[in-house]
Design a protein around this nucleic acid. Structure first.
Length: 579
RNA sequence: CGGGGUGUAGCGCAGUUUGGUAGCGCAACUGGUUUGGGACCAGUGGGUCGCGGGUUCAAAUCCUGCCACCCCGACCA
């Protein structure tokens, strides 16, 4: 490909809208172009990268026994009403109506559609297992799209669904996809971790997220350097502190004017935060979003609450709970904002973190303005309607598997795998008959990869001050031949000869034949991140060129033959590594 | 949805406080000189100053309503 003919433009300055390196460089290198917030188009170079990532996914999905199909992005409301998600999905779903007022959505995901296909076509155990996937555009009307392709409202996703007759089959399908994802992200050149995850709104009972490590990532994960434990912060188990041996002291109310936060009350009374009890007040909602109850949750003062654990303990949908209107809750339950304690509350569900039951002589709100109680003890002074672990793990807490201190790190969630079980097959009637003509619900798994987000994650992990450094496997072109003086016939002739030679060996070559100064060409080559740069310049007449890798600094002089051979070898080795 | 910020040429920005009819750099176009890390000189084109209403002899500038975009939070597979 001649760059003089390629439709592209690089930007010299950083667009005001971009903050993250991946976003900045994809815009500057002319890979993507924004239409409106959270909606991007792919330009020729960006489109090539996207196709490379897609093809890696395709190859590995096909190798794993998946079969590619393509469903429509537009979906009828009926199917979502069957699964119960038309109301449950919330404002993130992009809804629309046709001319006859029939309801549709732009698919945010495709469980319903795939389940529908299967229930209409599968009737016998002989047709199972099956794994279907597609690579397709998804729509989610995100509350806050940001960081370019990282969190967009229209994005490319690979979604796969497995259908099995029993748990054993589902386990196998799940493991198969887990291994496949490991291969896919390795081939993409990503540094990633598979972390245990909460199965969340999609449902089911097992899930892993594949997270590309990046300081700018939106996901926080917990990992252990002493063992292989890795989990999302919400999923990670957080052990209770050891029970206290102290003798119980008499309960006492103390005047603590204006000390609404744990920070304030602890310093006012001269107590460590570990000796206090923190209250979190929530209200819950029924289906039509009216308040149907109050929840008071209590953890030790130095802890954070893990809302997912509360949701799981209450067994309610995620969107059915939020922080309470303190004034209304005070009227209903007797709590006092800033001075709420676990004693004497009425008309609300009291959830007590399991750790508190073993701690002695704590300080808690007295449910009376400007007063706290000290020497509060579980059992003697208060109990909970629910006593369970609702703490969020914190950096340095003991690893739930091995006890070593855990470390927090950040990442970009590029894929996830779920065991769905019968969550969709049961309400939608996707069943098969076994050998005895007996009907069973089909067991499902679902497996997603954010393809465009993966592209962003690769750039986020692989760039320097000058631009992108593409891994060979996803680079838009493998080699760029920079012709120092494009008007020089000797130089152009040598460049074209090398282009042909390389192309014959399966190497994708970009020839920078533009009538620009060399500095401009070098800057652009670095910015768009082509892995190998071959410079054809003054020594073209002698058949000598310069050879440089984008990832390194050293520049070597080689004969054109040698440079082409080295480039071809490097590219084919990189591409063949997983073949 | 709450908080903050920004909308002026393709991109980056100044001008707004103190109203007087729009400017700089890059990019583009023409000509010339250049040619190994984002050249130089000369010239040219390009703007409903986000949109609407108001104040005024006069509005990018003041008042007002709206919209869009970005950041933090909430939320979110």
């Amino acid at each position: 490909m001649k760059m003089s003919k390629m439709y592209f433009r690089t930007l010299r300055e950083v667009p005001a809208e971009a903050v993250l390196p991946s976003h900045i460089f994809m815009l500057r290198a002319g890979l993507i172009r924004k239409l409106v917030s959270g909606v991007y188009g792919f330009m020729p170079l960006g489109n090539r990268v996207l196709r490379k990532v897609e093809n890696i996914i395709r190859e590995e999905m096909d190798r794993a026994g998946g079969q590619e199909i393509l469903m429509s992005a537009i979906q009828p409301a009926e199917l979502w009403k069957e699964s119960g998600r038309w109301s449950a999905y919330g404002p993130e779903m992009w809804r629309l109506k046709d001319r006859n007022d029939r309801e549709f959505c732009l698919g945010p995901t495709h469980e319903e559609i795939f389940t529908d296909i299967i229930r209409n076509e599968v009737s016998s155990y002989r047709q199972l297992p099956v794994n279907l996937y597609q690579i397709q555009t998804k729509y989610r009307d995100e509350a806050r799209p940001r960081f370019g392709l990282m969190r967009s409202r229209e994005f490319i996703m690979k979604d796969a669904y497995s259908f099995d007759r029993d748990e054993e089959g589902l386990d196998q399908s799940y493991r198969n996809m887990y291994d496949t994802y490991t291969r896919i992200f390795s081939r993409c050149g990503l540094d990633f971790r598979a972390v245990e995850a909460d199965s969340g709104a999609i449902g089911g009972n097992a899930s892993h997220e594949f997270t590309a490590l990046a300081d700018n990532g939106e996901s926080r994960i917990v990992c252990c350097d002493s063992c292989d434990m890795a989990a999302t912060d919400e999923r990670a188990e957080c052990a209770d502190a050891a029970p206290s041996e102290e003798a119980e002291l008499p309960l006492q109310e103390v005047h603590t004017p204006g000390t609404k936060t744990i920070e304030e009350v602890a310093s006012f009374l001269g107590l460590p935060k570990e000796k206090t009890i923190k209250a979190l007040l929530y209200e819950t909602y029924d289906d039509d979003l009216s308040v149907n109850g109050y929840v008071a949750a209590f953890v030790r003062g130095d802890r954070e609450v893990n809302l997912i654990k509360i949701i799981n303990a209450l067994n309610i949908p995620e969107h059915a709970i939020a922080f309470a209107d303190e004034v209304k809750m005070a009227e209903a339950t007797g709590c006092v904002g800033g001075f709420t304690g676990p004693m004497g509350l009425k008309n609300c569900t009291v959830i007590v973190d399991s750790e508190l039951t073993g701690q002695k002589n704590l300080c808690a709100g007295a449910n009376r303005a400007d007063y706290h109680c000290i020497n509060v003890n579980y059992g003697r002074d208060y109990t909970g309607d629910i006593v369970t672990n609702i703490k969020m793990i914190q950096e340095g807490d003991p690893c739930p598997k091995c006890g070593a201190p855990v470390r927090f790190t950040r990442g970009i969630e590029v894929g996830q795998v779920f065991k769905l079980g019968t969550k969709y097959s049961s309400p939608m009637g996707a069943v098969y008959k076994d050998e005895n003509m007996k009907e069973h619900d089909i067991l499902m798994g679902c497996y997603g990869i954010g393809v465009s987000r993966t592209m962003a994650a690769i750039v986020e992990q692989s760039h320097d001050d000058n631009g992108i450094i593409w891994p060979v496997a996803v680079a838009p072109y493998h080699v760029i031949i920079t012709v120092v003086k494009a008007k020089d016939e000797t130089q152009m002739a040598l460049a074209e000869e090398m282009e042909k030679k390389l192309a014959a060996q399966g190497v994708e070559v970009l020839v920078d034949d533009r009538d620009e100064r060399p500095g401009v060409k070098f800057k652009d080559a670095d910015l768009i991140g082509i892995p190998v740069r071959i410079t054809v310049g003054k020594k073209a007449a002698e058949g000598v060129v310069e050879y440089k890798l984008r990832s390194g600094d050293s520049v070597e002089e080689k004969t054109a033959e040698q440079a082409a051979a080295d480039a071809a070898q490097l590219v084919n080795e990189a591409l063949g590594a997983y073949a």
